[in-house]
Amino acid sequence: MENTDDKTKALVLIDVQRGFDDPSWGARDNPGAEANTARLLAAWTGPLVLVRHDSAEPGSPLRPGQDGNRFKPELDAARPDLVFAKRVNSAFHGEVDLDAWLRGRGITDLVLAGIQTNMCVETTARVGGNLGYRVSVVLDATFTFGLGGLTAEELSRATVANLSGGGFAEVVSTDDVIEDLARRR
């Protein structure tokens, strides 16, 4: 991770919602994702953005008004600078113009974590990279589910290849982020 000022780097937590605990999603990878998200939050000192997926699907556990739409308990102590909802994969296409909000605060670097690795996290990383942000994806603070005959683990590996191989983002660990934060203190 490139060493930058705390105020120019934002932590963006994407769709860390209770609805992803619903068994209908199937088998997931990375059972330690929530614990790593809590570790990131405890160490984070810069701007914090929480993004929530408000599904329009009638049976979705992520629909507004459902308990599954709420953030997971690991975010209960979070003191975000911005909270907003989206209905699509990219956090850059939500109720708030995230790009304008970030640029207005001089933020140049994004640290992304959340759910699902190969969906909303990867899409946000790709768009962020295309917009010129230096993006880091904290892989061990994400998880996903099997899809289209591929396991969750295979999809996570594909995300790593897509993001790092495609030049969209650097893939890092929670320990990498925490060590970087400690070096700057």
Rank of each mutant, 00 (worst) to 15 (best):
A113T: 06
E122T: 07
G148Y: 07
A125K: 07
L13S: 07
P23L: 11
G59A: 14
S156I: 03
R18A: 13
D76E: 15
E57G: 02
T117P: 08
A38T: 01
T37M: 15
L147R: 15
S173R: 06
L102M: 13
D22T: 00
V137A: 03
Q66C: 01
G128I: 05
L11H: 04
I178V: 15
N118W: 09
V171C: 14
F92I: 07
V171P: 01
R79P: 01
T142C: 15
D67A: 14
F145G: 00
P73I: 09
K9M: 10
M1K: 01
G19W: 07
L13D: 11
A125E: 09
E153P: 05
V83D: 01
A56H: 13
T159L: 09
V49M: 07
V12R: 02
N130I: 03
I115G: 01
G106H: 09
P23D: 08
V83K: 09
I14M: 11
R185Y: 08
L147N: 14
S136K: 05
L41V: 00
R28H: 12
A91L: 06
W44D: 04
G32F: 11
D5I: 01
Y133S: 08
D180P: 00
S55M: 04
I178S: 02
A38Y: 00
V88F: 10
Q17N: 05
W25K: 02
V138R: 04
D176E: 08
P58T: 07
G129V: 02
D180W: 12
W25C: 00
A158H: 10
N3Q: 08
A33S: 13
R70E: 15
A42L: 00
S156V: 10
K86A: 11
S24P: 00
D175N: 07
R70G: 10
G149R: 11
N36V: 07
R79D: 10
D54R: 13
V160T: 06
L102C: 12
T108G: 14
T124W: 04
G165D: 11
A35Q: 13
K9C: 13
F145K: 01
L102Y: 05
F84S: 08
G114V: 08
A38H: 00
G106A: 11
P64M: 04
R185C: 09
T37H: 06
T4N: 05
P47R: 13
A33G: 05
T174L: 11
G128H: 03
R183E: 11
L41R: 01
D6F: 01
D140S: 00
G32H: 13
K72Y: 02
L131N: 05
A42C: 00
R103Q: 14
R39Y: 03
E95S: 15
L13E: 10
L155N: 11
T142N: 15
V49T: 07
